[in-house]
Simulated scan of single mutants.
Amino acid sequence: MREINAGDFNAALFHDEIVPAYRPVVIRGLVRDWPVTRAAAEGGEALAAYLKRFDGGLPVATKTAPAAVNGRFAYDAAMTGFNYHKERMTVSDALDRLVALSTEESPPAFAIQSARARRYFPGFQRENRLPVLPDSVAARLWIGNAVTVAAHYDTTENIACCVAGRRRFTLFPPSQARGLYPGPFELTPAGPIVSMVDFEKPDLDRFPLFAEAMAASLVAELEPGDALYIPYLWWHHVRSLERINLLVNFWWKVSGSTHEFGSEALLLAMMAIKNLPESRRDAWRALFGHYVFGDDGAPGAHLPPARRGVQGEISAEEAARLRAEIARKLAPRPEPAHPVASRLRRLAHRLAWRR
């Protein structure tokens, strides 16, 4: 995996070279001078004291799992729920609990995950900025002990900044999805679908293609102050390695499209096409290749620009009209019991409101 020292890193390099290359990159020392990173270097209590300065008083969601799960937040045995429970507490109470757990020999897994800085730590981002991104890109805090986040992908670009503790990232290109054995779309720990494989003890009888995925993986171990660029749709498994860990990440979109509903399009395509006879699926594969992926060149290039419609660049007004038409076609059917279909019905309502 490519590594860059912070002194050689700048916005032009990042946006003009790294992001278009679509490969993860480690930036060593990028946030070592952040005030929060310096506080964390003094120990868990100093980090907690620094973060408490920004406690806005709102209850934040926490996760706790028994020590027996070895920090791995996952499904329960029946896959009808999860192996952790949630509760809400103030940021200060959560930090006090984390510090107390750090003194125990076999503590339960405990974490605050994806807490928006502007909501739960107001003022934090003003002191800990990432100059290569605009201030409008919001910071999120991931705080906990030695917990593991299952492999998953995000529909955004991501810079993950390690502030306290070490973190090990195992990354996979989107093409390795089959070897990661994704779980259900209908029930997920936090929205994105996650791999079913326990990376510490992989069951290769149940998940034989995982070995193939691992052969294609990249591994990055971050020290405090380091950062990692994770491209859009790249799978990443994240293991925190210390008794107190803090990661700050930034998600943003750079696709250039204001009409992106990739996850919803995937769900709809699965429902509409996946179970058709093979000849029909082949026909749709050809049409997707032509119209969506440009396998035959730019679709609609033979048409006058003003008449290309969705085959070319469309206006905000035309996009609103198309969303309304999609919503109209999705909405009339009775509400189905299947959770994925329910999500698509909710999408239809959102599309309609965006007019």
Rank of each mutant, 00 (worst) to 15 (best):
A150D: 14
F110L: 12
V25M: 06
P304D: 11
Y22F: 14
F54C: 02
W34D: 04
K52F: 07
A190N: 07
S217D: 03
S257K: 12
K201T: 11
E45N: 08
T155I: 07
L222K: 10
V31W: 10
W34K: 04
V197Q: 06
A215L: 05
F250Y: 15
L95W: 13
L344A: 01
A65W: 02
E212V: 05
H349N: 09
E212Q: 12
R2M: 07
R126Q: 15
A78I: 05
S106V: 08
F110I: 08
I143D: 04
L218E: 15
E325Y: 09
D135H: 04
P182F: 15
W353M: 14
P59T: 10
F14G: 07
Y153H: 14
A11V: 10
I326N: 01
E264D: 13
P299D: 06
I273A: 11
R239E: 04
V19C: 07
D16A: 10
R281K: 10
A100E: 13
A298R: 11
R140P: 01
D93C: 10
R38E: 09
A41G: 13
A68D: 11
A215V: 03
G294W: 00
G44V: 11
V60T: 04
A40I: 00
S240C: 12
L347F: 15
F185R: 15
L246A: 09
L246G: 01
A111E: 08
V91A: 08
K52H: 06
R285N: 14
L322M: 05
P189H: 04
S257F: 06
A352N: 09
E200N: 06
A117E: 02
D135A: 02
L101D: 12
A138K: 10
A100N: 12
A12V: 15
R308A: 06
Q125V: 03
R321M: 05
D33E: 09
G81D: 14
A117R: 02
G43R: 11
V26K: 09
A265F: 13
